[in-house]
Design a protein around this nucleic acid. Structure first.
Lengths: 185, 185, 185, 185
DNA sequence: GATGAATGAGTCTTCATTCAT
DNA sequence: GATGAATGAAGACTCATTCAT
């Protein structure tokens, strides 16, 4: 219970604050309505909170994307791609500041980065394999890498540089073009 | 003089350290062979050092890329694209840890991010305009956004996830495909 | 039951640890297979555990020494003295780290120190009285003080400075000389 | 300057307090009339303060003893021994609580213990060598060990168990007897 | 009696910044 | 301009103790 309260408090603090850093343990505890001691009953260290947060967040994001675009898994890639882009944009729009903060923090922790990125990439590889016959590139793993990186990059660009324009359709069309031309010839 | 010594000391410290954070002002000063007081004579605050560093770094990166791929500005895009990718990879390989640290720091400062990204993007827009006749996408600004974001994303992915493989040629070929198919039809 | 489990757990923890301090109550409880709450049902405070420990330990030490050298009580002092030294050394070798920790802690609690030292001294005084005719010093209480202090000091010196040499015979001979010459003329 | 202020403040705090422990860094700083930060400019850690204190204290004690009994170095051992005992007692009477606290703390740090005890022991060995012809025991190093340990033990006993009686002459006579009979046959 | 989650004051330590020299 | 000692708020973390269940 307190475990979740701590995580939720951190999420809120992160979503509210302007600068990137993880809040102090005391601040998190106060916001969670518990004492610092309690916080340390559930997490070994400040870093452990971050890790838990990143894991939960990445699963939530995956779930969101899947629930948006997942059902289309069997449709033609040409239809799935724009849906996927929309789903990714929507998932990123839920808590953009939190997302930014977590991305920022994960950047300097390769192990955590991998832990979070590998399953997501595996999902994409699976989808590519499903449609192997119409997918142009042969190295599916390399393709998945490029794919996920590019989509995230585009969305992050929008998010970090000009959040207001995240809903725009122009960059989506362009990104869709990029992917379709790369994947489908 | 001291101004540059401080910047250089910070660069070195950042490139050496494993964890991401900017070193303490005292540490920077000691490494620069200067007193903290002097440091504050040249920089208003710890943040100011960071900003100066980011600016210088981004210019250096641009210069590196231009000196690598620039001469080809007038060649056919089909030849320039791979050269550009190589140039970007080379520029990122010079001081990868420093680059990571600065990217990390810049992430939560939209103003600084824009200040650094706009000129780079302008360069790309300029190049696209030069070859407007053979460039497929019409919205050059959106194309430049996608272009720079994707290339950086691919390189950062390589850099942050598996630095050893930055020199590989497989991901470059794939990235080249992505760009050529998008830009040149 | 739990009472003894707590004491035994503390003893073990103390004997295992390298640094001197009494372990935390939570640690003791966990090791004892008991909850902190239970611990407080048997001991008023962390200090109370320490006091109980010191008392038990001092009785154990006395018992050990008596069982070693006691039977010789009626023999000639010249024979009892080396036996006593050996018995003291043996008693100290059982749990040297625990002993050190308790000595350390007792040092700043004069009342506890007296409580532990007085009975031991009384034993020695009794023995001296038994052999009053061959014992040179007249002030038996002062002699007992010097005696116990000196033997303990020698053993502690060995124990704290160079535990490996506790089994050596050279310092024992020397200590025996010291005592014999003082007590027996 | 602040360096000494910190040490002096700690000394005073230690001499005043009843329980043994080294005071907190904040307390020391406040008492020294400086900020915690300043404290850390002169000492690497709380432990470093302790070490500095122990070193200074042991030198002060040595100096005190030497200034008391030193001039007699060339006199006959039979005269030097009581003077040495008096000098040791006097040195211990200067700041008994401080001494107790430092002894307590040093107990669990064999390296520091050795650092402090070795020079003192060397002094005694030197003196024994000077009078080798009249000194009975042949192993001077073992004799010095026993000597210093016994004298300290007797004084500490007096100090920790019944400080008021430190000035008494009865235990001194007895201790003197012990040493004379051991050393001089 | 037993539990163990919760407390929160207190610990050591760091660090950006100032200012008298 | 340069120095670097001094500051002190703030940070992460510990731990003896309580109390509702």
């Amino acid at each position: 219970m307190s475990h979740d309260a701590v995580l939720e408090a951190t999420r809120r603090l992160l979503e509210e604050s302007t600068e990137g850093g993880l809040p102090s343990t005391n601040r998190i505890a106060r916001r969670a309505g518990v004492s610092v001691g309690t916080l340390y009953q559930y997490f070994d260290s400040r870093e452990a909170i971050l890790r838990a947060l990143v894991r939960e967040h990445s699963q939530e994001m995956s779930a969101l994307v899947v629930s948006h675009a997942g059902p289309l898994g069997l449709s033609a890639p040409r239809d799935v791609i724009p849906a996927f882009i929309d789903a990714m944009a929507a998932a990123h729009a839920v808590a953009p500041r939190l997302h930014l903060a977590l991305v920022r923090e994960t950047l300097s922790d390769p192990a955590l980065l991998a832990e979070v990125q590998d399953p997501a990439r595996a999902l994409v590889v699976g989808w590519l394999e499903l449609h192997r016959d119409v997918i142009r590139p042969k190295d599916l793993s390399a393709a998945a890498f490029l794919l996920t990186r590019s989509v995230e990059a585009a969305i992050h660009g929008q998010l970090f540089e000009d959040p207001a324009r995240l809903g725009d359709t122009s960059w989506r069309r362009e990104l869709c073009d990029l992917l379709v031309r790369y994947l489908l010839e």
